[in-house]
């Protein structure tokens, strides 16, 4: 159908509209350029798939957390310990994102928690389509917690919504305390910053107060927790944070019709 006046529907011949180009005065036979208002987000396709994921998670009452950090922050160690501890309380599943290898998913599976590895190949981040596929593989339990360990990268994963409830950024004390300022998009997108490896603080010159100040500078509302995934210090606070979020998701879960009052 013609975009100018709607003629040509029902397979009828289309009228010819000249003079509708950008300049409004083109001669017949010359280029008929016209302007089209689009106003569409470049990430609109990913965002639509993320919305589908989010809808599914909400229906099942599943809390999904997207863990992001640089490589080497101790994300997988934290996740192994977390998954092993929390699976005693409720069902837990993990999606592992890496460019190559299934090392991380293997480590998670060794704890008894189901995990799917997503290899991004040349890609630098997970996207909503990958999560949708991974979740089909996993088969999510109702009212469970799904952890997504994103590709180790403080830049690209900031822009890609996976349908998660929150991004959790992990910074370790063996890194620079100024990372929140160097990679502000990620720290702005996260709802919680976990400072990991705090058992190493006595041996390092890392200034915790300074890193917290920097994180607040880019994200005044960010929650903060200090942990050591190796010694277990501070993990209770992390589990409480998860539990609080999980309760909100479970409470908001739509009940099937006829199930009220049960």
């Amino acid at each position: 159908m013609c975009a100018v006046c709607g003629c040509g529907g029902d397979d009828k011949p289309r009228d010819l509209h000249f003079g509708q180009g950008a300049a409004g005065a083109h001669l017949p036979g010359l280029s008929q350029a016209r302007m089209v208002k689009i106003e569409r987000d470049i990430l609109g396709h990913n965002d639509a798939l993320a919305a589908e994921n989010r809808k599914r998670f909400a229906e099942q009452g599943v809390l999904v957390l997207n863990l992001v950090s640089s490589p080497g922050s101790g994300k997988t160690t934290l996740l192994c310990r977390t998954a092993a501890d929390l699976q005693l309380r409720y069902p837990v599943a993990v999606v592992e994102g890496d460019q190559q290898t299934s090392f991380d998913a293997d480590r998670i599976r060794a704890t008894g928690v189901p995990a799917v590895q997503v290899n991004t190949g040349k890609g630098c981040h997970l996207d909503a389509l990958m999560i949708g596929r991974a979740v089909e593989q996993l088969g999510l339990a109702d009212e469970s917690v799904l952890f997504v360990e994103n590709v180790g990268n403080l830049v690209c994963p900031a822009g890609f919504d996976l349908g998660e409830a929150a991004k959790v950024v992990i910074l370790s004390v063996t890194e620079g305390e100024d990372k929140p300022l160097k990679y502000p998009d990620m720290f702005a997108a996260a709802e919680l910053m976990i400072l990991n490896k705090i058992d190493l603080l006595p041996y390092l010159s890392f200034d915790v107060e300074r890193s917290v100040g920097f994180a607040r500078q880019v994200n005044p509302g960010i929650d903060l927790l200090n942990v050591s995934a190796t010694t277990g210090q501070g993990l209770d606070g992390w589990y409480d944070w998860i539990e609080q979020r999980r309760r909100q998701v479970v409470a908001a879960r739509p009940r099937p019709a006829g199930a009220e009052g049960r």
């Binding site: 280029s31 008929q32 089209v36 987000d41 470049i42 822009g159 929140p180 607040r216």
Partner: peptide, 29 residues
Amino acid sequence: RYDSCPECGGGSLQVTGGEEMRVKELEVE
């Protein structure tokens, strides 16, 4: 993102605009 407030020097800014990535308009034929 980490700028201080140019008015009062405060460090608690909530971003309200400038995050867009959009296809705004096309010239087509």
